[in-house]
Amino acid sequence: MGCFHSKICRFSTPGYEDPTLLAAETAFTVSEVEALYELFKKISSSIIDDGLIHKEEFQLAIFKNQNRRDLFADRIFDLFDFKRNGVIGFGEFVRSLSVFHPNAPVADKIAFAFRLYDLRQTGYIEREELKEMVLALLNESDLILSDDIVEMIVDKTFDEADKKSDGKIDEEEWKEFVLMKPSLLKNMTLPYLKDITLAFPSFVMNSEVEDSE
């Protein structure tokens, strides 16, 4: 039996949250949050139609292949899943994507990227973690680099970023480092998010608000 009213359907969806509240907390307008719901519905129904994004659905949306694994896609999924229940609800999706909005504060982007690289969640990016990430990516690519070259790249990075020379990069060092090298935050901004209402015009049909701005 289908839903007769889209609003009732949405509010009975697990993890759904009021777009007005989400817009107030994030870099998005109400219209943009509603357009994001169209994207969310598509991703969250791609394998299991339960109104939640499972890891396989997230991977399918990123790689167009649910079986492909990637260290960073896993890490990003875990960071989006801030309730730590193994799935991403609509509120988590919007709040997390907000960091990637062109208008989001740079400090939020810097903090998110730090948490992404802090694989073991120790509060530091450690030398071994950084090498592990480089090796994981090399494994997934056709690029071959000798261990000496990898060591050299990691050493040079630590020479520049680890100002305290204690073998780990803390959040303050990370902030100073990326402010010197803003290109490292390139992946933290998604220009698409500014045009999300154009990408999902169907949100207008399902809008809950008369005037969304």
Binding site: I62, L116, I153, V154, K156, K186, N187
Partner: peptide, 25 residues
């Protein structure tokens, strides 16, 4: 050539490029 490990990671990891979420929408 990459002289910076983070530059290498952000350039090489397709899992860190969320723009693909919007492709084929």
């Amino acid at each position: 050539p990459f002289y910076n490990a983070f530059e290498f990671i952000s350039s090489m990891s397709s899992g860190f490029d969320l723009s693909s979420l919007f492709e084929g929408k």
